[in-house]
Amino acid sequence: MLVDSHCHLDYLEREGTDLDEIVARARSNGVERLVTICTKLSEFDQVLGIARRFPELYCSVGVHPHEAGREGLEDAERLLELSQDPKVVGIGETGLDYYYENSPRQAQQVSFRAHISASRESGLPLIVHARDADEDTIAILREEYQSGPYPGVIHCFTAGPALAEAALEIGFYISLAGIITFKKADEIRETVRNVPMDRLLVETDSPFLAPVPKRGKRNEPSYVVHTAEKLADIKGVSPEEIAARTSENFDRLFSKAAREQADLSA
């Protein structure tokens, strides 16, 4: 069984997609749990509402770096309040994006630190977006870690070995999306080869970045099987082992989701 640790079902819903069909296809492809990710606090109610509709679905709470100029946070208070809901299992996505720079860098950094504070206080994993900002991402993660540890994951990993090594040093996980299936992703695949198996997750980041052989189509959680198959090839193990190990890793990092799932099964 697989877990899609990062998708955006609210985006799909706003496109008019039937989420019942999306989740049913995920189930039929062996995807047992999903985390739909919040990018704006102004849209959190919709994200949470989707998570509440399906027993295998969970969500996060946070502000994407693209939105930091409009909805960025200066402290953790609101995140901590919203994270009390049983369906909220992560903080983010947050981080830094210097590629598009849709928000000022300073606003991104301030909001990033507020999310880290919320993760540290709540114990929920920090979900980090990093694009063309490796140096500042590493610096902030390390500096904040000195104030106290916090769990987390670099989602949709597209960086080089420096960010991977820094993240692993503080106990973070590395989550891989469809990009690892792309023809020109050799450098990312080489970095992934050196990531320990007990620190890996898989995701779709749907509706974006559909993996080969679905590239060019709208991505959805059922397609995570293709990313898992490519990861198995990179690591030289079976797809079944990747499914088992990444699910175990998910339960360890997203322990609140694991506890809630266990309560449902009891």
Rank of each mutant, 00 (worst) to 15 (best):
G90H: 00
Q109S: 15
I180P: 01
K214D: 08
L124I: 09
E143Q: 08
V88F: 08
P213I: 01
Y99G: 09
H155E: 04
G216H: 08
E165K: 10
R120N: 06
A232I: 11
K214Q: 15
V224G: 12
L231K: 04
E121F: 09
I170S: 07
D186S: 15
E190G: 09
V212C: 05
Y145K: 06
N219Q: 11
S175K: 02
A167N: 14
Y150W: 06
Y150G: 10
I234H: 09
S206V: 01
Q146H: 13
R193T: 12
S111T: 00
E203C: 09
T158Y: 01
T158V: 10
A162Q: 14
T204G: 04
V110D: 14
P161W: 00
Q109N: 11
E101W: 05
L96E: 13
P213K: 11
R189E: 11
D136Q: 12
F157E: 07
K184S: 05
E220S: 14
Y98Q: 14
R113H: 10
D186K: 13
A114Q: 02
P149T: 05
R142H: 09
T204K: 11
Q106C: 11
Y99M: 06
P151R: 02
L96R: 13
A159M: 11
A130V: 07
I154S: 08
T204S: 04
R120V: 01
Y100R: 15
E143L: 14
T227P: 00
L124A: 10
E143V: 09
I234Q: 14
G160C: 04
T181S: 13
C156K: 04
V212Y: 15
E101H: 00
E220Y: 06
K217H: 02
S119I: 07
F182P: 06
S103R: 02
A164Q: 02
L200A: 01
V202L: 09
G95R: 06
V212K: 06
N194Y: 15
